[in-house]
């Protein structure tokens, strides 16, 4: 049973994600996680500010149910299905992170320099989280989808706009990783 507690390889995760997408299609739904962010805007009264948020959020209930499941899934994993949090990174990755000042690269699921309690005590730390999220939210709605809607659903349907969006994802990610992160940390 050890393999359950170990990290799972890509050839388990990829096919399961494809199955989830196909299952949602059979249930009359479309795989797309960022839509939930728009639904939340509608639920808190966003339609007063923009017609973009005029939608029947109850019709999106199924997608919010997936969000609740995803949170439960994270909890189940860390509570019952893990023997530790170590992420087995490429030594070169670890080295480059050390040079940026990350002390325990791969020792936890996410870096404590960004997500730990201490990061929340500085304005810079809070801004990194807030701006990172802002860009994800703004960009995914501008592009009409995120990793699940474009990279998985859209590419599976061979849609050209999704390919353009995924190319954009990578341009942005490469610029942040190679040119901006070294100046932020």
């Amino acid at each position: 049973m050890d393999f359950i507690l170990e990290p799972w390889p890509w050839w388990v995760a990829g096919p399961v994600i494809a199955l989830i997408m196909a299952l949602l299609l059979l249930f009359g739904a479309n795989f797309g996680m960022s839509s939930n962010l728009r639904t939340v805007c509608t639920m808190v009264g966003g339609e007063k500010f923009s017609d973009f948020f005029e939608l029947d959020w109850k019709a999106q209930g199924w997608n919010l149910a997936i969000v609740i499941g995803a949170i439960i899934g994270g909890y189940i994993t860390v509570t019952f299905l893990s023997s530790g949090e170590t992420v087995d990174l490429n030594p070169q990755t670890v080295e480059s992170l050390q040079s940026l000042g990350f002390e325990n690269a791969g020792g936890t699921m996410v870096p404590l320099e960004i997500f730990g309690q201490n990061a929340l005590t500085s304005i810079k730390g809070v801004l990194i989280l807030l701006i990172g999220g802002f860009l994800v939210g703004f960009g995914s709605r501008y592009a009409g989808g995120c990793t699940s809607g474009h990279a998985i659903s859209g590419l599976s349907d061979l849609q050209v706009p999704s390919l353009i969006a995924v190319i954009g994802f990578f341009i942005g990610g490469l610029v942040m990783t190679h040119f901006m992160l070294p100046n932020i940390f």
């Binding site: 960022s34 990194i128 960009g139 501008y142 969006a165 994802f169």
Partner: peptide, 22 residues
């Protein structure tokens, strides 16, 4: 335009926060 620009903005956030909406 929207896919490329929106995608780039998304990518910047994805690499900074290390997480997408899922």
């Amino acid at each position: 335009t929207r896919y490329l620009l929106g995608g780039i903005i998304f990518g910047l956030g994805w690499a900074l926060a290390g997480a997408c909406p899922g």
